[in-house]
């Protein structure tokens, strides 16, 4: 396969540092959307099980040794950093590796940053590690995954610069409050 030179999704806008808060690029090398064909969810579950994963329930994710899988919508999951070949024929597979811009927001107060932009309670108490939510980052469609020390924020690649600007602004205002 021809290998092309990849361009940085964020064009050098990241990382952003504001006091104890950090926003860094974290786009997985390979993203494949998995949508089980009608009546084949069981087969997909089995195939993913052999990969050390499984189909995540709504709002959940699963971590394997090298790969991970996130629930990403109704009847859909994102397989990360794994070859989707074992799922061929039982699920609709789409390579979305270049479609998403993924950031990691970490540091104390990350939840206060999100509360300025997301109409959803993403505080640690209600959004435990591994939890996933589809919602809006201001007016952008986004996906959130809770990490041990912060949150992963996914937006469409075309929205990368806007998302960084919105998040950097919110980070500055949270950091300014000390």
């Amino acid at each position: 396969m021809v290998s092309l030179i990849a361009t940085d999704v964020f064009h050098g806008l990241l990382p952003v540092l504001q006091g104890p808060l950090q926003l860094a690029a974290a786009t997985p090398a390979r993203i494949t959307s998995v949508m089980p064909f009608r009546g084949r969810a069981g087969a997909v579950q089995t195939a993913l099980g052999r990969m050390g994963l499984g189909l995540p329930e709504p709002g959940q994710s699963r971590e394997g040794k090298a790969a991970a899988i996130l629930w990403s919508g109704r009847g859909q999951a994102f397989l990360l950093d794994a070859d989707p070949e074992p799922l061929a024929g039982i699920a609709a597979l789409t390579d979305q590796s270049d479609a998403w811009a993924v950031m990691r927001l970490t540091g104390p107060g990350w939840d206060q940053v999100l509360s300025r932009l997301v109409a959803l309670d993403l505080r640690p108490s209600g959004f435990p590690e591994g939890a996933v939510a589809r919602s809006g980052l201001n007016h952008m469609n986004a996906l959130f995954r809770r990490l041990a020390d912060g949150v992963e924020i996914w937006v469409f690649r075309s929205m990368a610069a806007t998302a960084v600007e919105e998040l950097a602004g919110a980070m500055a205002r949270v950091a300014a409050r000390g």
Partner: peptide, 14 residues
Amino acid sequence: RLVAAVESADLPGR
């Protein structure tokens, strides 16, 4: 309620 049929509406485990 979900409009889609239960069969295709959801992932296993739920």
